[in-house]
Design a protein around this nucleic acid. Sequence first.
DNA 1: CTGCCAGTTCAAGTCAACTTGAGGTCAAGG
DNA 2: CCTTGACCTCAAGTTGACTTGAACTGGCAG
Lengths: 158, 158
Amino acid sequence: MRDIDIAEAARLSGVRASTLRFYEERGLIASHGRRGLRRLFDPAVLDRLALIALGRAAGFSLDEIARMFAPDGRPRIDRRMLAAKADELERTIRKLNAMRDGLRHAAACPAPSHMECPTFRRLLRAAASGAIGERKTRRPPRKSFAATGREQGRARGS
Amino acid sequence: MRDIDIAEAARLSGVRASTLRFYEERGLIASHGRRGLRRLFDPAVLDRLALIALGRAAGFSLDEIARMFAPDGRPRIDRRMLAAKADELERTIRKLNAMRDGLRHAAACPAPSHMECPTFRRLLRAAASGAIGERKTRRPPRKSFAATGREQGRARGS
DNA sequence: CTGCCAGTTCAAGTCAACTTGAGGTCAAGG
DNA sequence: CCTTGACCTCAAGTTGACTTGAACTGGCAG
């Protein structure tokens, strides 16, 4: 069994079939051929998907990730880019640390109201001044891990 | 000068006027009255905005933040919720730390290709298994700090 | 040969947090 | 009094990463 179909790829990678199609459209992965209508993927697509997941986890956008592959398909990852992203993560981590400490303190603070707690007020000023920075809340991805092989959540056909 | 108008509130808080209107619509802040058409805010709105900024920075959604205010307007912040968010941040921080270390290693790794670097491959597996988790990229907010009093970026009227 | 159903395409929808545009209003300055 | 322009409302657009719906196809089991 050389090539795998989209359901297999989805099952093995934990990435939904619709996402695989989307990634292909965006040039992040490529299908190797078809059997009838059905895409066939080289099993190497799984490594590629892992790489994409890694990039996403590191905070790269899909466009950035796409640029990490040479035209011939081999990963061509700029080490400086990695270092830069590491630095960015470092800064984010610092802010989150401050935030976490502040939250923990506020949660344990004996002051009758948070507004009377100096630590809380210090946090407040930091946030107001933008020193802490803005983050996006991520929405829960509706799938927590590998799918079951068919596209999920479409149980009731019309 | 008891009440401030929206431009003043925007200037003092660094939050855009359009955002203030949006927040009012969402029930996060309230205007105190009008002069003609123009909203008037109690200066206390600035504290409230700081609190909102803090909540956003901590990763709360606007809906969650809205729920942190009692119907009468006083902040009623659940300490358990703060602790829970602190724990969540803790987990995020741990993942980001792992990510950062991995990126730094990959950036410095002497292996000819990243795929041959054991550390990189370990990271890859972690990302593929979902152990590292997904984050959203935040987009740059188009304003870096306090506005100048008028709404920005609309220099050329038609 | 026939039907099933997992696959296909393409467009449109979702989500969050805003921003932008069009068209309208009104307090104040000249 | 009349213009000016900052403010108003309401609807629609933006962004990124997908998901979902509708309509269709074709390999394969029976």
